[in-house]
Design a binder for these strands. Sequence first.
DNA 1: GGTAACTCGTACACTGGTGTTCGACAAGAG
DNA 2: CTCTTGTCGAACACCAGTGTACGAGTTACC
Lengths: 192, 192
Amino acid sequence: MAVTTRRADAQRNIAAILTAAAECLGRDPAVSTSEIAKAAGVGRVTLYGHFPSRAELVDAVFVQAIATGEETLGQVDLTGDPRDALTRLIESSWHLVDQYRALLLAAQDALPPGRVRELHADPMARVERLLERGRTENVFRTDLPTSWLVSVMHNVMHGAASEIQAGRITSEQAAPYITATLLAAFTPPKPE
Amino acid sequence: MAVTTRRADAQRNIAAILTAAAECLGRDPAVSTSEIAKAAGVGRVTLYGHFPSRAELVDAVFVQAIATGEETLGQVDLTGDPRDALTRLIESSWHLVDQYRALLLAAQDALPPGRVRELHADPMARVERLLERGRTENVFRTDLPTSWLVSVMHNVMHGAASEIQAGRITSEQAAPYITATLLAAFTPPKPE
DNA sequence: GGTAACTCGTACACTGGTGTTCGACAAGAG
DNA sequence: CTCTTGTCGAACACCAGTGTACGAGTTACC
């Protein structure tokens, strides 16, 4: 991308479109390009001048969201007791999930299948590493595949987001609920 | 509804449309009325003669699905050790969730908000009753609201359905995975 | 201050769905 | 056997979105 040869106002517009799109898609996963353009203070034609299609715009927004999310998650201390590390990771991840919930929906039906997962590779690998470590230290269960545990974590967090949206729990309750649930779910079953 | 005065072939067509719709919506939540009509071996106009709109058709299909599901779940023995009862309930519920997964998606964006939950009231109440009993018997945890536990169960099951659809686990693995996960998640935390 | 890059609004073509209307025709009920 | 009820296909109006074309105007860059 020879962005260097882009004129200053063009770059400003691209940025404005990107942030407006993030905001709009966060409200309604099905917003039209017209509304995004309007929110960005830009003509619809200009939008299409920078992004060849709605899908590519959504993709760009999603890539950006993942990148900033990764930046946050990269700062979480994952050393020490895996249970404590998981608690910290949940705390951070949770805010991101809650924030980008609608955007994810938008991506899921605007992007080709598999693309969403592809872009999630990095954050997923981070969770997997932590779980693997906990498993070798006999703190997390090993009778279920790691990938399943990751999926459980993912679904519980998104479920919490739904509960919030429906007004059945508050934003503050979510993190402790999720943590309590997942720590229990990941604990090795009693040999009994 | 004076269905009594309906002609025999009309009743046949209604049934055909309903089953065809269930089948089509199970494949693709966004099927058009044309395709449903075609699958039912019926003209599109005939379909609209019986169901005033796509939404009402989806609603009818969903109501039917819930009803047959309830019939199955009603036969599950929920007495005895709550953990065993939950295992049995999961086994039955799981098949239903897996089967009606796509239909649920269709309902969620064709029906007014809240309608889906409204129709889920009965199955949800059944789960709640069992969980409540397990709580009074100190077999299930009481440090989280019952509604949250129900939501976790719901989300883990739907997550398993996604995993299957993505080919990451098989249909046979699902039930044991779900059971192992939820029993652990619902276990009271050690006082420690 | 000239030039290339960029933007704007309007208008258009296209797509793919929903719901309705029409008139001819078939099939069940009594 | 008749009459009501239901069915059919084709056509239509409508809507909302996507992506493109055009030509005039504006803005950054050197």
